[in-house]
Amino acid sequence: MRTPFRKMHGLGNDFIVIDARARAVAMSNARAAALADRRTGIGCDQLIVLEPSEIADVRMRIFNADGGEVEACGNASRAVGLLLGGEQRIETLGGTIASSTGADGVSVDMGMPRFDWDAIPLAYAMDTLTMPVGWEDLSDPTAVNVGNPHVIFFVPDCDAVDLARLGPAIETDPLFPARVNVNVASVVGSDHLRLRVWERGVGLTRACGTGACATAIGAMRRKLVGRTTRVDLPGGTLTIAWREDGSILMTGPAATSFEGTFEDSDFPA
């Protein structure tokens, strides 16, 4: 039997999207990793499985390229919002979010950020606004959970950081029991950030929606930018607003690259 899929991306952060609402599709960590392999599979940063939901319009399961199932993915949320159209409520492991399509792209209400040390989570208690820790030249980060865990370093030039080397060491540091997404950001202006992300279970990525949200919120908490800011990533720009009700609104583009099918027996569950 063959399973249809759609290849989509948000600012170059790319996904395999499988609609399993009408016909269940078995997905294991090993199968997700095999499909995500860019040499022997279809290739993607994240694999998305859409399933029926009892609490929302759809349930979105998210598997990173290493096969691990994770809580949230902002760019994938926009892609799913584009695929489904209109206004949607989307169930994820990180909570229920809402998407809507408009002239500016797809907007996603990512819910409330969390800052308590055990909500990140960290291995032990500390102030998450300015954490008294460091790795070589990266120090005093802030931490935010926006459905998944992020640590953010504000630096003069994010492009000068050897994130390919430092990212994996920070991601797997014992301080972060669930591992962590690593963000390095530079402040361009009162409503403008530049950002690079080492994504947990993926590596360097052209864009990370939750990373943009977490970084913007971290900058807002430190009063580096206002309540609405643009975030420039290698793949493009997102707009992040921290609304008065406390929720995060992320707006940006998403697109379909192509559609296809794969033979189930080629990627056993």
Rank of each mutant, 00 (worst) to 15 (best):
R165F: 06
F153E: 12
N64G: 01
T142N: 09
D66C: 00
P168M: 11
T128W: 00
I90C: 00
G95Y: 04
A169D: 13
A164T: 12
A178Q: 15
D127Q: 13
D104E: 15
L82E: 11
D109L: 05
H150W: 09
W135L: 12
D118L: 07
I120E: 02
V151K: 04
N183E: 15
G167F: 04
D191L: 11
I62S: 00
L193C: 02
A160G: 07
R78L: 02
L163A: 06
H150L: 08
T142P: 01
L83A: 07
A119T: 14
G147N: 04
G85T: 06
G85V: 08
V155W: 13
R61E: 10
S100H: 15
V133I: 15
I55K: 14
T96F: 02
P149F: 07
G201A: 06
G85K: 04
G94A: 04
I55G: 06
A143P: 14
V144N: 01
A56Q: 10
A160P: 05
I97T: 06
F63C: 01
L138F: 13
L195Q: 05
P121G: 11
V184K: 03
V58I: 09
L175Q: 09
V188Y: 03
R78T: 01
G111A: 02
N181Y: 06
V58L: 03
T96A: 03
A160T: 05
A178P: 01
V202C: 10
V133R: 12
I55D: 11
G85H: 06
L129Q: 15
G67F: 10
M126D: 07
E199Q: 03
G95I: 02
M126T: 13
S190D: 12
